[in-house]
Nucleic acid binder design. Structure first.
Lengths: 196, 196
DNA sequence: CGTCACATGTAAAAGGTTACATGATTCG
DNA sequence: CGAATCATGTAACCTTTTACATGTGACG
């Protein structure tokens, strides 16, 4: 039932089409909830039926008509109620970590490659979040910003994303080092000592 | 299909009962995958049918007979194949973050309370991971450990958990500060200026 | 001339959660 | 004497993923 609130929350700071929301949730750009486009479209339909969002059809030349969604007052009220309700703990599912947990039985080279890809992905997301941060602050210091903004929410979650992706990239680099260090023990002899 | 591999990975470093695995996956103690007990039992049944794990029935006095599961060679092979296959990006679902994203329309006190609970949860998990780390290293330095261990996997994921929970607790504290700072602007006048 | 971005969905299958069920023992 | 721990599941329901479907315009 939480996708409902995730979509509402994504609309707090302005209207959007299903397509735009889908990109945020699918690309992992929304750093707090993940969902596929099909889910977003279905959820928007349901939210519209419940009148928690209103839809405006915008005809376009040479493109399909799009529906722009915005929160209704009832939608805002729903979010307020959600915020007050007890939260489920964070649910994490990470295939790479499953592979890493099995590090002692799998090929280290394969793991290092996967860790490299993960680190690269983290750096890309980090760059994105830094852009978002810059555009949110738009020149103000954090102190100035906090006292004047109506966009504290996005700033807080953006900072969470920055911290998370920074950590991820650093951890990957550290893990790669350790795997290589151990490989050094196992494989250097093969290269250095033809007798082995 | 990944729960399958998560369970196999959890068995790499020793046998366990469904009950023990269920605790690890449910309590969020397994820091890389989340699953409910019912899922674990069902998955173990399937893994057993596929002969990726073997089960040993252990009768106990005054307790129901338990089934202790261990990886078979085929199970290890399955894990090796999984490690080499492309990984899906990390999927995160965090209800608290949804509420934080909506910070500009919800009651700040309610959010601060929720952030406090999250920080507390993070500190508890952190304490647990530190215990695990200590018991893995058991007095050795990291360098010694890496050169001699067959338990690098658990150490790597444990360190990821430590970093993640540390970050989470710090971010929560920072977010609380910012919310309070903004509240100061809105609410201090109410107390200090009876004219307002 | 192929592929990407825009823009929206349906339908079937897989995966995950919630509620329920059982039953002894130990701890406070 | 009630609650938590050990130990295992079934059944119904809800959520999520995957595969499929459609059509134009811009870019290289």
């Amino acid at each position: 039932m939480s996708l409902r609130y995730a979509v509402l929350a994504a609309l707090v700071h302005g209207e959007a089409t299903g397509y735009e929301l889908a990109k945020r949730f699918d690309a992992g750009v929304a750093n707090f909830w993940h969902a596929r486009p099909q889910q977003i479209y279905a959820e928007l339909t349901r939210l519209h039926e419940s009148e928690l969002v209103r839809a405006t059809e915008v005809p376009q030349r040479n493109r399909p008509t799009k529906r722009v969604f915005a929160l209704t007052d009832a939608g805002v009220a729903e979010l307020v109620a959600f915020a007050a309700a007890p939260k489920q703990p964070t649910a994490l599912r990470d295939e790479l970590m499953v592979a890493v947990q099995a590090a002692d039985v799998v090929d280290p080279d394969v793991l290092v490659e996967a860790l490299d890809r993960q680190a690269e992905r983290a750096r890309r997301k980090l760059a994105h979040f830094r852009d978002v941060e810059r555009s949110i602050l738009s020149g103000r210091t954090e102190e100035e910003f906090v006292r004047t903004t109506r966009h504290l929410g996005p700033y807080l979650t953006c900072r969470a994303g920055i911290r998370l992706e920074t950590e991820t990239a650093q951890w990957c680099a550290w893990a790669i080092e350790l795997l290589r260090a151990r490989q050094g023990r196992d494989q250097a002899p093969k290269a250095n000592c033809p007798t082995a």
